[in-house]
Design a protein around this nucleic acid. Sequence first.
DNA 1: CGATTCTTTGAAAACAGTCAATCTGTGTGG
DNA 2: CCACACAGATTGACTGTTTTCAAAGAATCG
Lengths: 192, 192
Amino acid sequence: MFEIFEKYLTERIELSGGQLSLIRSLTAENKIARGALILREGEICRNIHFVIKGLLRLYRIDAKGNEHILRFAKENNWISDRGSYLSGAPSAANIEAIEESIILSWKKADFDLLLKELPAFRELMRSLSARIHIANLERLYSSISNSAEEKYILFIEKDRDICNRVPLYMVASYLGVTRETLSRIRRVSINK
Amino acid sequence: MFEIFEKYLTERIELSGGQLSLIRSLTAENKIARGALILREGEICRNIHFVIKGLLRLYRIDAKGNEHILRFAKENNWISDRGSYLSGAPSAANIEAIEESIILSWKKADFDLLLKELPAFRELMRSLSARIHIANLERLYSSISNSAEEKYILFIEKDRDICNRVPLYMVASYLGVTRETLSRIRRVSINK
DNA sequence: CGATTCTTTGAAAACAGTCAATCTGTGTGG
DNA sequence: CCACACAGATTGACTGTTTTCAAAGAATCG
């Protein structure tokens, strides 16, 4: 499965055989069962992950016991709780596999080594990080400026694939509305 | 005014006199009148700014003509439309001085040069960028999981200073509610 | 003081949440 | 192959929250 990641990398940056071997030598591969957690609230996020296959969600549980999904991660996406990963503080979030998934994982120390040794890799991470930052701002904007229905429509347009792969109550949780509200929005939207 | 920025820098990273001179030589200082825009919707954001004094806001105007504030920037904060700045695409946002402000500005090419030449500076920017990323995620979480009143309370706790310096309708716009709603929330909150 | 900008209020309508019940589809064990 | 259990989705009735629109009250500033 490392080959898929190798392809991901070489399509984006130039790496020598030796550099690829270095990366490979620090990479762990894991199969995650549907419903299993790779990060649990209260734990420190000590790894960064890359999704080879499958779909995961990062979510928190609020004081009332409601789940709120902050992000989905599918094939070719990176995932971790960045706050906890960088600060070493306990995470407030859970990361769960929605589908049976295959992921690659790196310990923070190893990943830092890669960033240090491989400028191109570091640059790739930086540009990804900028893109994610911008995407988050867009989502924030959508969340303060759009109605629930508009947010739903934007979400299908932007992430149709994810929308089709997760149950509707997770879409609702991602959008910040109840499942019932989403259900009613859809009833109306479909008749348009 | 560069001295204030110099202090900001030297409190955070080590820089030689020569390096500071290099930075200074590429820095432009500007005074912005209250209400003036330093970025207008449709323009490309070609500069990055550092606020020495004053307060600015970055906002967008939606299809119905409503303003939505994505962020405030006060003393010692950086501001630009990162999406437009990095991609060169026209910006969807405006940046306006809420108070008369003094800012330092760098052209993208010059700023890139500084990032390239000064590893410590680059590292500082990277860590700031990570912090902003995390703060944005928190805000997104708050926006999907909290009621309007909870968001308001969080905002005063976290940004009391800004809250006191801007008109309430801007707080409302930042929180994603109407001014009337914020007014009613406050009436209730104050009696608690 | 007068003009402008900002804030508050009221009443009605639109929107979203809650709770309880029902419906649908899927898969498992008998 | 059927029946049942289970997870997910929908519906209805009700409640609560937020918006909208229009008007009136502060506050600020030249």
